[in-house]
Amino acid sequence: MGIRTLVAMLVTALVVIGALATQESYKVFMPGLLQGAVLTIEIAILGSLLAIVMGVLAALARMYGPAPLRWLATVYVEIFRGTSALVQLFWLFFVLPQFGVTLNAFLVAVLALGLNVGAYGSEVVRGAIQSVPRGQWEACTALNMSRPQMLRRIILPQAFVAMIPPWGNLFIELLKSTALVSLITLSDLAFKAQQMNQNTFKTIPIFTLVLLMYLAMSLVVTIGMRLLERRASLGLARGKAA
């Protein structure tokens, strides 16, 4: 879908939220829902940062690490991709305390979502690094660059562009997964919706607003990643021409 359509959808979503918020039956829910949305955004941002760190580390460990590190990274990726996010969230929340490690719910949420998406992200990073043409590696070797040097200066800047669209999808997945944290007592957007629904039974206004808010947040991420992609590939094209 083109970036113009996406922007149009975002504007429409925001206008509809704004228009609904002026109505009495919707207005009462706005402060609570916005409060929840802030927590959702916090978890999504911190989770994404952790996912990026884990994705890059796991990918580099699997590709260039010594054998034990490589196995560790593989086990991490397989476990977090092979079980569902909710299972991981519950495991960290309910089981970890039995081993004497008690984390607060917020930390569990960021850890579970970040580690989960990071495992998928490591495959993205690996794929992107491998998609850099062989000639680039050979040229680096010919120029007698060390491995960290070639990764940092030649390979990763090129792989970065290929990574942007799949990472965009993963960020959306992570944002949507934050709704799961409502099930471990965090009062995010989904939790607020559930709570207000149980107290007031005004199901339609509450869930309509919540869906629109999630839509708006996802669209912001999608549009942001599109713009980033455009900028990053512009830089690459210039580099090639010169």
């Binding site: 959306i172 949507k176 997964s177 934050t178 709704a179 799961l180 409502s182 989904a190 919706a193 559930q194 629904n197 869930f207 919540v210 869906l211 999630y214 839509l215 996802s218 669209l219 999608t222």
Partner: peptide
């Protein structure tokens, strides 16, 4: 459908 969480859709 793809931009909103499945959990919310289930509740909906």
């Amino acid at each position: 459908i793809r931009s909103t969480p499945l959990l919310i859709q289930i509740f909906f």
